[in-house]
Amino acid sequence: MSVTTTYRTCPRSGLQFENQAEWLMKANAFVGVVWLLIGGLLAIGVVLTRWPAVHWLEADTFYMVLTAHGIDMLIFWIIFFEIAVLYFAASTLLRCRIATPKIAWLAFALMVIGSVLNNYAVFRGASSVMMTSYVPMMAEPNFYLGIILFAVGALVACGVFFGTLVVAKREKTYEGSVPLVTFGALTAAIIAVFTLVSGALIIVPAWLMSLGMMEVDPLVYRTVWWALGHSSQQINVAAHVSVWYLVA
């Protein structure tokens, strides 16, 4: 069965953008930059409070702001923008339609809902547990639920990226190996899957703990959480190096 797609050729770069893929890139990049902006504004509060001459925020407010700053800058901004890079590297560079655009939009919606829900929980004032949220220091359930929804959405988006690579290969939109930038994005996506699965393995139990349904060993939590924390930075590195090769 043939699939009808609409393409636009950029007059400056000559790159070919498939309509659904382009909108998905714009949406993910835009929301990522919004979280970067919010995280940056929150950073001002952190800096002005740490500056002894100013000491702007009271302790409770400071830790609330610091929690939101860490999550928005180190998780939401990075992964939203990486998803935009993945769609670009698969669809645009391989001159291919996006695989399952409806599922890609569902993934985007889950990521937006999850990130907003998490921030809502933080700014209610009862979830100032820092980005690491070490147990037994507990946040309210929506804090963890927001991260879970975001992670599920990001995993689905990575699946759409992998699916788009399959579509490109099957429809022979390129010859030989994938471009280096696409290979770098593939590396970032593989790291992202490991990162998100690691996060789910420990955030889901923490969510259940916040509901009073189970207990989580603090040492196990810290060990598994940093599989999320450290590898999330490598997503950023892999994606950025890929983009540098593109623009160099």
Rank of each mutant, 00 (worst) to 15 (best):
T4N: 05
T6A: 10
Y7W: 10
P11Y: 07
S13T: 15
G14W: 11
E18M: 06
N19H: 15
K26P: 00
N28T: 00
V33F: 10
V33W: 09
V34C: 13
L37K: 07
I38A: 13
I44V: 14
R50N: 08
W51M: 08
A59F: 06
D60A: 15
D60Y: 02
D72K: 06
M73S: 15
L74M: 11
I78H: 01
A84I: 00
V85N: 14
S91T: 03
C96A: 14
T100I: 13
T100G: 03
I103K: 15
W105L: 10
W105A: 02
L110C: 07
S115M: 02
N118F: 00
Y120N: 05
S127M: 04
P136S: 06
M137P: 00
E140Q: 09
P141W: 06
L145W: 04
G146A: 02
L149P: 01
A154S: 15
A154F: 01
G159C: 03
L165S: 05
V166M: 11
V167K: 13
A168C: 06
E171Q: 12
K172M: 02
E175I: 01
G184E: 01
T187S: 10
T187F: 11
A192L: 14
F194G: 07
V197Y: 03
S198C: 14
A200G: 09
V204R: 07
P205L: 05
W207C: 06
L208A: 15
L211A: 14
L211Y: 03
G212I: 08
V216W: 02
D217N: 15
A227D: 14
G229H: 11
G229I: 10
H230N: 14
S231R: 07
Q234S: 13
H240V: 10
V243K: 03
L246Y: 06
A248F: 05
